[in-house]
Nucleic acid binder design. Structure first.
Lengths: 133, 133
DNA sequence: ACCGGGGTACGAAGATTTTCGAACCACCCC
DNA sequence: GGGGTGGTTCGAAAATCTTCGTACCCCGGT
C-alpha cells in the first residue's frame, strides 16, 4: 500500500537470510549484475529473472529482506539498487568475495610473480584460525 | 550401504549448494566449529546440532554434498573433517570470509593505526568493480 | 478522465526442505 | 557370539519456499 515499501535496517538482517537469498541462481545473478553496474542501480526491467510479474516481485522481496537491495520507485517502472556500502559494513567482504567467485572482479591473488612475503598476513590460502595452541 | 559414503569432487559442487548449506544456522555452526579446531576434524558427537539421529545425519549429508566436509569412520563413532584446502581452492576466500563474519578470526582490516596506504589494492570497503568506464 | 504499463499483496497450488521413526548395518566390548 | 552404541537409509508427515493468477495501486500519456 505505501508507495515506498519496507526495507530492513542492515543490523536486523541475519546471515542466514543472506545465504538463503544468495542460494538461488537468479537472485545471485541480480546481485552480481547490480554490482557490475557503475551506479549499482538498474531498472528491474533490465534484470534477467524468469517468471511472472508476481514471481519476479517475490524475488525482489527476498533480496530486499536480506538487506541486499533497495527498491526505488521512478514514476513509471522501478529500479533496484545494491546496498553495497551498508551491506559491506554489516558483512565485511561478503559481497567482494562473491564478485571474485563469480569472476566479476579478478581474484585478489594471482600467482605472485616474484618476491614471496613470508612475513605479514598472506591474503591467500586457507590460513588456519587456530594453529594448534 | 558402503562403509564409506559418497563425497563429491569439489568441482561438481555448485555455489548454490554451498550457500544453501550455509543458510542454516546449525549447519553453519558445524562449519565454524570445525574451522576453529586445529585439526579441522571433530567427532560428530561433539557437534551441537539438535534433533534425532536421522536429522543430524541429514545435515551431515547436506554439508557433505556441498563439498564442505568429509565423513570418516573411526571404528566406533565417526568424525567430520572440514575440506578446508580443497574447498578454498574451489571457492577462494569464502571460508576465510565466513570465519571473519562469525568472529572466529579477526577482521583483516582494523582501523589502521597509522600510515594509510593509498597506493595498492586496499583490501577493505566495497571497491567498485567497474568504476564508471 | 480513461487506459495501459509496471509493480505489490494475497491466496492457493506445487515443489522442495526438514524432521522423525523404523529398519538395518558395522564396530567394540564382555 | 550377543548386546549396546553410533550411524545410514527409507518413507511419510510437517513446514517452508516458489510460482502463479487475481485484485489492486500508482503514474504517465492521450
Amino acid at each position: 500500500m505505501p508507495v515506498q515499501m519496507h526495507h530492513p535496517s542492515l543490523d536486523e538482517v541475519a546471515l542466514s537470510a543472506v545465504f538463503a537469498a544468495l542460494s538461488d541462481d537468479h537472485r545471485r545473478g541480480v546481485v552480481v549484475t547490480l554490482a557490475a553496474d557503475p551506479d549499482r542501480e538498474l531498472p528491474c526491467s533490465a534484470l534477467s529473472v524468469p517468471g511472472s510479474k508476481s514471481t519476479r516481485s517475490y524475488h525482489w522481496k527476498v533480496l530486499r529482506e536480506a538487506g541486499l537491495i533497495v527498491q526505488r520507485n521512478t514514476g513509471t517502472g522501478m529500479t533496484l539498487r545494491l546496498r553495497a556500502e551498508e551491506f559491506d559494513a554489516r558483512f565485511p567482504g561478503l559481497l567482494t568475495n562473491l564478485l571474485h567467485l563469480e569472476g566479476i572482479t579478478p581474484a585478489p591473488e594471482g600467482p605472485a610473480p616474484e618476491g614471496p612475503a613470508p612475513e605479514g598476513p598472506a591474503p591467500e590460502g586457507f590460513t588456519e584460525p587456530n594453529p594448534r595452541t
